[in-house]
Structure formats: C-alpha cells, structure tokens
Design a protein around this nucleic acid. Sequence first.
RNA 1: CGGGGCGUGGCGCAGUCCGGUAGCGCACCUGCUUUGGGAGCAGGGAGUCGUAGGUUCGAAUCCUAUCGCCCCGACCA
Length: 497
Amino acid sequence: MLTRLLGGAPLALPLHPRYTPSMAQKVTPMGEDFSRWYTDVVKMAQLAEHAPVKGCMVIRPYGFALWENMRDRLDRMIKATGHENAYFPMLIPESFLQKEADHVEGFAPECAVVTHGGGKKLEENLVLRPTSETIIYHMYAKWVMSYRDLPILINQWANVFRWEMRPRLFLRTMEFLWQEGHTAHRNEEEAEEETRLALNMYREFAEGTLAMPVIVGEKSETERFAGAVRTYCIEAMMRDGRALQAGTSHMLGQNFAKAFDLSFQDQDGENRFAWNTSWGVSTRLVGAVVMTHGDDNGLILPPKIAPHQVVIVPIYRSDDERAGVLELAGRIMKEAGETVRIRLDDRDQYKPGWKFAEWEQKGVPLRIEIGPKDVEKGHVVFTRRLDREKEFVPAGEAAALLPKRLDEIQKTLFDRALAFRDDHMKEIDDYEQFKAEVGDGGFFLAHWDGTVETEAKIKEDTKATIRCIPWELGEGEGKCMVTGKRSKQRVVIARAY
RNA sequence: CGGGGCGUGGCGCAGUCCGGUAGCGCACCUGCUUUGGGAGCAGGGAGUCGUAGGUUCGAAUCCUAUCGCCCCGACCA
C-alpha cells in the first residue's frame, strides 16, 4: 500500500552539517504582508534564492528535491498514459517563431534573442525557446508521412526562457523548468480527447499528489495560449485568495500543422494536416504548494512530495541518555527506512528546540520526538506539522504506523485546502458589490456575456480576470452581471498571479 | 519606461544632516557549562563602506557621474 503511495523507494536526501540555515529568523506573518511571507518562506526553507541575473533564481537542494519528487510522480503519470520523453534544443531559429501569426505576436515581446556566436554576428538570430511548439512541429513534419505514423505522443522536460518584468521566485522567473507535452493526431476528435486527458491528469496530480484542489475549465479568448484554438486550465486558490494557474492544456487545432507543413496521407489517399495539442506544468507548482499549505511558521509539505516525510529529533542530556535515545531512534529508522523517507537529526550542535523550529520552517509533515522519558516509558511522540497535534505511540508500533499517519496528513491537507477555497468562493450577481469585494481576494462565480469587451471592462475596473469557464461549476443560464445580456453559465473571476 | 526607497563583514542594520581613519545584532571559530520549543558566558576571525572621478591636510560622510537592487503602475506558466 505504501509503496504505491510513495511510488517506489524513498529518496535518501542527506542531512549535511551545513544543510540547515545559519540564520535563525522568523517568517513575516501572512496577515501582515502576504508577499513578504511568501518570499520569507521560500528563503528560510532554502527552496530558492535570487540569482545574480535579475529575474533568475537558484533552486537549492531542498527545493530541487521537492521539485524532483513532483516531477518523478508526474513523469510516471505521463508515461502511464502512453507518452514518451524526448528532448529538443533550446535554440530556435527566429524565423520559426514567425511562422504562426498569433504565436509570434504572443511570444515575440518576451523572447531572449542570441545575435552573436563564435565572436561573429549570426546570419539568423536564434531565440531561447519560450516554449517549443515551433521546433517540435518542424521535426514532426519530417517524421510523419502517413496516418499510420500518428499519433505522436511526446513529452519533454526542459527549461524555457521568457523575459519578465516583474519576477517572483517560482511564480514568475525568466528561466523556469517545466514539462511540455506535444502531440499530433489524425483528426480533431482525437486531439480534443488528448487535450482533455492531459488536463484530467493535471487535476489528478494537483489534487492527489499536491493536495491542492483545483477548478477545471476553459480559458476565455483573452487568456488563451498564443496559437491555440482552445486552452483548458486548472486554477488553484492561494492563501491570500488570489488565483494561480497551475497547469494548461491546449487544443492547437491545425494552426501549427499548417505553419510547419505537418501533413500526412490519410487512409482514403487524401493529404491532410495533423491536429496538435500541447500541455504543461512548471516549477511554478512549487510556489503553488507553498501558498496553498504554508502557515506563519513556514512551509507545510504534503507527504507525497516532501523530501523528508519524517524527521526524528532526539532529546538528551548525558551521554548515557544520548546512547539510549539514539538506540531507539536507530531501531525506528531501521524499521521504517524502507517504507518512508525518514531522517534522524542527530546533529550535536543544535538543541531540540532549534531543530523543531527548523524542520517546521521546512515543512516536514511529521516529527518524532524521542527523549529519556520516552525511552523509559517505551513510547515516542509524533507531532504533526500541520496543526502540531501530538500523539504518544508505543515504540514498537511507531514505524509501522507511519504510512497511515502520513496518508491521513495528506488527506487532511487536501480537505483543509478545499474547505478554505470553498469558504472563499461565492456566486455573485451585483457588479457594484463585486467591485467592492473582489480586491479582498476569493473566487467569484458570476454570469458573463462572453464578450472580450466586457472581460476587458472587468479587468479595467477591478484588475480581476476571468480565470476560467468551469466545467463543473456555475451551470445554469443567467444575465451578465455587467451588461445584463444573456449568459449560458457562470465563470470564475478573481485576482490572479 | 514613470513614481518612491536602498547599496557599509555571510545576513540584517546604525553611522551620512554637522568630514577626523568603521560599529551593533545574528551567524561563524575556540573553550567550558547546556539540551522536552530557536541556550549562557568568555575569547577570537572576518568589511578597499556598490563603482569611478572630484573637493579637502583628511571622505562611508560633501559634489558629479555611473552601475545595481527592492517596492508601486503596462506582459506571462
């Protein structure tokens, strides 16, 4: 059961002596300044830091271990749905980007361009990929002759570059890591199905692995990916009530196929253009996890992705006590080591109180405290990160109980996040009231007449945007809250990251 | 690009108004005492004051230029 939960052998991330920060600082309270709270948590937990180049970040080992855990689990889901991994280059001829009109319009302003190489000016500029549609479909065009060559189901893990004005660690950086799936299909139905399959995979990943509830739906025309026919998305609510796009899946139609001559001879002998899809999630999800579960003591990690799921903190005075405590700790380590990612914090230079605070900042889901009194009584103390609830557990049962407790924590985190989101989401029909309230955060389910103009007015008036046209919420016709015109269903509107 | 703020040991800051050869807290190193919620004491190491010019007997401090960063307004996963 647990092997399934963890999806394989636990990672053994070492506790290097210099692994903990040398600073002992407190995090700015969320209620005081959410933005600073976020930055503090990311830095204190040693997830990432700013790089010398503005807009770039260094992902530190603890943050990268977190990303790796996310990546590995998603990678398995991607492969389980029939996709293969491949790798395409980072440098793309500038002319490629220009072949699809909407695409170039959307991405040209944020491209970094290489103009020189080998000490000489290049004959053709190269752009650092902001996304890889162009280079990938250029290659697919060479690989596809007949309908028998379809579908192509490829994914790549890569870095991409987008010139950003207002960077935030993980949420918006010039370079970020992601996964981009790119597929080619014989007909529209199959491509549409693929687009939805990818989106459902993301939903399952967000909710099942990250314990982050999401709203599934379609983007409005304004928010649509440059070059797509339809863009689907999952939207999550952060602790300040703002929305964060956590993943997107695009039905590209034949736009790129036409631009790159990705065509094939069909069964009936006719030449047809292929239908494409692309879909991705990025390191932004690390930021999403921070802002979904964290509190004023720092990070709180869902067990499934936590680099350390359990940390044992030994407590002792004399050498005798030390020996007894460490022996019991060692026994639990040995019993649990195969099933959970557990570490023993036996560093001598820090006191227990220090270690408690430290691992709380880093969001370790469960802590085991073992002191002389516990050794004497034959039990240990479990403390959950999410609410500091303590539990006395007989020493002999501790290791075997861990998987169950971690499972419960995972579930509690999801339930808690879901309750928070539902508490901050409501239907609204009065535009004046909406304008007054939307600034305070939360999701608003409102009727919208479906026009770009009305959407622009809402953004102009309130800075809030239509996050998505949800699949499962807000059903039923009504009148647009702005214009009073007919509306087929409610949409989700919120301030967004 | 427009508005506001800041560059001083690893981190956070004081000193700048009123020039006199650099200081505090945390962190780090050594030793002793400590360890169930971020230990105490003693000793120690560490800074060309963002950079470049200028004024002056003397500049972190005054003048000029320049670079960089952070916060607020126009793009994005």
